[in-house]
Design a protein around this nucleic acid. Structure first.
Length: 390
RNA sequence: GGAGGGGUGGCCGAGCGGUCAAUGGCAGCAGACUGUAAAUCUGCCGACGAAAGUCUACGUAAGUUCAAAUCUUACCCCCUCCA
């Protein structure tokens, strides 16, 4: 069923593991970070820059590309890889997260209880989720079958079953009902996937269950019992770091460990170390590229300007006269050519170069971090590596 | 020389008798951001003060009024049109 895919372990340390994820577009060394290129573009970054920063895999989104320009259109252009000029491994998310984000805004806003303006999620029922297009206001129904069909047209190596990403503030009853429905949706996704499998894609199942131990366990068992290629952990992971690690740990317990395990939407440095320590193989997150656009450059602990912050904010006035690069020991093209002062100026002057330059650094940074983690696992000194970072 | 319009906080620009330390926007200063409705969003932004509050402020100067950025008069600038 997944003859062109494989997950081969190359080393492990306690629960942490390093491996090779084989795809039709190349191999991925794990643990790996997947950069978000939601609308068929890692914002401000060219595929060439992705290659140069040793990016292994990127992700695009079903919901966005379904809304515009449409998956048939992309299929006619030769598929997403060809359309966007990226020849490496790729994953498409199912659109399930948009059931959360278009209804509740950002994760932080939902947890902090802030109002997020107008919701463009109209309704959700057994059939699927009804959206009001953020582009033109038209109504769009996304179902498990449709999500998989769209993802088939897009042609990413990895596709994801359609689920509902449950919010933190849902009560246990809703979370359970939602989880059960997600399970049914995931089964339907898998059936649709199998119906027309041409072996160019592999599908992920998703563990839901919110912050509830028993639900997470049940969900993990459900996913493992069904013939997904790999597993993703989704839904809310709680409101604190501690809760997040606990939820992930619980979700891991019932999983088939022979499959690759992805942690959806997590990208903080310490969060990644904690995930890896629990056995997570891949991560994806908008964080590195989003904070870059807001002036945030990821730095090693010795370059931080705030004890608990993993990045420096180049918009701060203190950097106006800082002639050093973001990181003196970084060899990315941004650090090789630009000072913090120049990047500060570019941000203040609203020059687009600032956004892409910082993003290049952050992408390079994350890829080197993952490389260091892999080396740590293989060498068996991951705890030492982790101690340097967190 | 004649006619008209205007001078508001770092800038642009509302307000046109009390509820105005003065809407907005920009700039400035911080913060947030975790399967991207995000080059976004939030807060602060006259001075002193932790705050309550006090003081100084809507070209300048005199007035009218219980009360003036808002009304009157004079003056100083600016802009437009006519000679």
């Amino acid at each position: 069923m997944y003859r062109n895919f494989a997950f081969t372990p190359v080393g492990s340390h306690q629960k942490s593991r390093s491996g090779i994820l084989k795809t039709p577009h190349g191999n991925i060394e794990t643990p790996a970070f997947i950069f978000c290129g939601t609308k068929a573009s890692v914002k401000g970054i060219s595929p060439q820059q992705l290659y140069e920063t040793k990016t292994q895999i990127i992700l695009s989104n079903t919901y966005h590309l379904f809304s515009y320009p449409g998956s048939e259109y992309i299929k006619e252009r030769g598929g997403l890889h060809k359309f966007m000029g990226w020849d490496g491994p790729m994953l498409t998310d199912s659109g399930g997260f948009q059931i959360f984000s278009l209804g509740h805004g950002s994760v932080a806003e939902e947890i902090k209880g802030k109002r997020s303006g107008i919701s463009t999620l109209i309704n959700i029922d057994e059939e699927g989720a009804l959206f009001k297009s953020y582009r033109d206001g038209s109504l769009q129904l996304l179902t498990p079958e449709k999500s998989v069909k769209v993802q088939r047209n897009l042609g990413a190596d990895f596709i994801v079953a359609f689920d509902e990403c449950t919010p933190y503030h849902s009560d246990k009853n809703y979370t359970e009902q939602s989880m059960e429905r997600s399970h049914r949706w995931e089964k339907r996704s898998l059936e649709e996937f199998v119906r027309k499998n041409d072996f160019s894609q592999a599908i992920y199942g998703i563990v839901q269950g919110g912050v509830h131990r028993d639900l997470r366990k049940r969900s993990a068992e459900f996913v493992s019992e069904n013939s997904f290629f790999a597993t993703a952990i989704g839904g809310t992971l709680g409101s604190t770091k501690e809760q997040m690690y606990e939820v992930v740990e619980t979700a891991m317990e019932g999983l088939d460990l022979s499959r690759p395990i992805h942690l959806l939407g997590i990208g903080g440095i310490c969060d990644i170390f904690n995930g890896v320590a629990l056995g997570i193989d891949t991560f994806d997150c908008v964080h590195p590229t989003r904070i870059a656009r807001h002036g945030g450059a990821l730095v090693k602990p010795q370059y931080r300007d705030h004890p608990t912050r993993e990045h420096i904010n180049l918009k701060r006035s203190q950097y106006a006269s800082d002639d050093s690069p973001i990181e003196s020991d970084c060899n990315c093209s941004t650090c090789s050519n630009f000072s913090r002062a120049y990047l500060h100026y570019l941000l203040k002057a609203n020059e687009l170069l600032a956004l892409s330059s910082i993003a290049v650094h952050n992408i390079c940074f994350m890829n080197k971090l993952m490389e260091e983690i892999r080396a740590g696992i293989i060498a068996g000194d991951l705890n030492y590596v982790r101690g340097k970072w967190c």
